[in-house]
Design a protein around this nucleic acid. Sequence first.
DNA 1: CTAGGCATGTAACTCGTTACATGATTGG
DNA 2: CCAATCATGTAACGAGTTACATGCCTAG
Lengths: 189, 189
Amino acid sequence: MKEGITISLEYALLSMLVRKPCSGYELGQLLDVFWQAKHSQIYPLLTRLEQEDLLGYEHVEQSGKPDKKIYFLTDKGREHLQKWISKPPAVPIQRDEFLIKAYAIWLTDIETAKQLFTDRIAAFEQKVKYREGVLHEMEKEFGDKMEEITSRHFGRYILFQRRLALDKEEIAWCHWVLDLLNKGKSPVS
Amino acid sequence: MKEGITISLEYALLSMLVRKPCSGYELGQLLDVFWQAKHSQIYPLLTRLEQEDLLGYEHVEQSGKPDKKIYFLTDKGREHLQKWISKPPAVPIQRDEFLIKAYAIWLTDIETAKQLFTDRIAAFEQKVKYREGVLHEMEKEFGDKMEEITSRHFGRYILFQRRLALDKEEIAWCHWVLDLLNKGKSPVS
DNA sequence: CTAGGCATGTAACTCGTTACATGATTGG
DNA sequence: CCAATCATGTAACGAGTTACATGCCTAG
């Protein structure tokens, strides 16, 4: 009893920690590529996973900064994660307010519409820059070793490549929409 | 007081209904392009929005099928939505278990990894087919009228184009990963 | 004859966010 | 001096899911 309360975040944490030990704080940041969670959800969950012996931790004292707990995966945790991977994944969900606004964009004037899309482009260009930076760092550090499935950096590498491609596609789409908006505006033909 | 409890789903419903009146059941299906919600969340919300005079509804009797309520947007609802559109959208979130599995894929054997990605491709090819079908229907029905921002179908059109492009990009990425997996496997060089 | 689609609703629960709480250090 | 970063935690609430409930019709 009490077992089996799933929670995908649980596996998200395990999959991060199997690559390298992290503090809860660090996990909150790294998680962002494929899952979003606030620290208020992460910390209690880490405590629970530690109590279930899926994780262990080491207390690290720091000078000038608060102390931290570095969590690592136990053998039990590794097995737990491994068994889960081959099971069929749940259907993906995406919640993006921008898309609702885009759906109802015909209600607004062209200027407001353009503003929304140019802001979107700016935001995504920031992301692209950041992803490219991370990928550049990874390449410097690991070379094409991470292109091998046996590398513990393989997963992170392919996910950053995916996000990058998707973000670029989103930008391209925004430009396409902006072109449509401009076409409608011009009083030519 | 009591005002301002946000909920993006509220605006998702309004933006659907401003295009055309729908039943709660229908909304649940149409919503899928940009927001996912179960009927147990939709029905009570529709009731609330109706009580707040943002929506009205008409009771429609059907033969062979259960009766239904066709909801429509009131002027107040339209204004409410319009005001919201120009405000900066919340940061998007995506939760996809597959990505967690992809992150930890290096833990598994190559066959399991391949299976995961080929299943993903199959699922997304289904989606692409469906989106293309919908776009085809839209083109037949409205022609390039929907490429104009003043058309009430503009939003739906651009969102389907977006989803289609993104799904295709996802498939391309999966193939790229499969290539990497095959490279590692072949005992050539 | 039974599984699935149409159609609406409520109750109980879990997942996830916001707000509260603390505190030292660094950069503008 | 104020904001941000590092670092961890709890409490209260809101958002979203699962399960319960009903009932008729159609296709395999």
